[in-house]
Computed example of a mutant assay.
Amino acid sequence: MSRLDSMLRRLTAQRDGLNWAAEQIAELDGDVLDMGLGNGRTYDHLREILPDRRIWVMDRVLQCHPSCVPPEQDFLQGEAEPMLERLAQGGPRIALAHYDFGMGIKEEDVSEAARLSPLIARVMKPGGLLISGQPLVGFEQIPGPDTIAPDRYLFYRA
């Protein structure tokens, strides 16, 4: 598979997974967390499909497209551990989390996801959903939408 086809497959899976998850949490109160703002595509999509939810955004630096800059009070800038600790101080509030941290080195990305999983668990509401391109630990893995290959995106319930 070409890198272009692989990218299209990943972005389609991401979009389909987010749309599916938004429907799944319709009856669950809580905020949304986008871990890894990047250029802001995912955040922008979350704003569109969940307009009535507060969306927390976390990243080391703010370098997204100008149209995708989150409100200052919702942007947690810095390393993941202290930002998750800060968010956890308010108690479990996240109904939907999207995990998109990583450097593109599979072994390191998997290790980081495993290391951050207990901190992520502290911010998740019981029954909340997590969507991730990396395996997370300590959550119940669930099937996502049928349109997504099981190895492309992972779905979890807190």
Rank of each mutant, 00 (worst) to 15 (best):
D44N: 09
D44E: 10
D44T: 05
H45P: 05
L46C: 09
L46D: 05
E48Q: 14
E48W: 06
L50V: 07
L50C: 14
L50A: 09
P51R: 11
P51N: 15
D52C: 02
R53D: 08
R53E: 02
W56E: 03
W56M: 08
W56P: 01
W56N: 08
W56V: 01
V57H: 12
V57C: 15
V57L: 06
V57W: 12
V57N: 14
M58Y: 07
M58C: 15
M58E: 04
M58A: 14
D59G: 09
D59H: 05
V61G: 00
V61E: 12
Q63L: 08
Q63A: 12
C64W: 02
C64F: 05
H65E: 12
H65N: 12
P66Q: 15
S67K: 11
S67P: 01
C68L: 06
C68S: 11
P70L: 11
P70T: 11
P70G: 10
P71Y: 08
P71C: 07
E72L: 03
E72I: 00
E72T: 05
Q73M: 06
Q73A: 13
D74G: 05
D74S: 08
D74I: 01
D74T: 05
F75Q: 08
F75L: 07
F75P: 04
L76P: 00
L76E: 03
L76Y: 15
L76D: 00
L76F: 15
L76R: 15
Q77D: 04
G78H: 03
G78P: 11
A80F: 01
A80P: 01
E81K: 13
P82D: 10
M83I: 00
M83T: 03
M83S: 13
L84M: 04
L84N: 00
L84P: 01
L84Y: 04
E85R: 14
E85M: 06
L87Y: 06
L87R: 03
L87D: 02
L87E: 01
Q89P: 03
Q89H: 14
Q89V: 03
G90F: 08
G91S: 06
R93M: 07
R93W: 08
I94T: 12
I94E: 06
A95M: 10
L96G: 12
A97M: 11
H98V: 08
H98I: 02
H98M: 04
H98S: 12
Y99R: 09
Y99M: 09
Y99A: 02
D100I: 00
M103C: 05
G104C: 06
G104V: 08
I105K: 10
K106F: 07
K106D: 07
E108I: 01
D109Q: 09
D109V: 04
V110F: 15
V110T: 02
V110L: 06
V110H: 15
S111A: 15
S111D: 10
E112I: 02
E112Y: 08
A114M: 03
A114R: 15
R115P: 04
R115C: 00
R115F: 08
R115D: 02
L116N: 00
L116V: 05
S117D: 09
S117M: 07
P118W: 08
P118H: 14
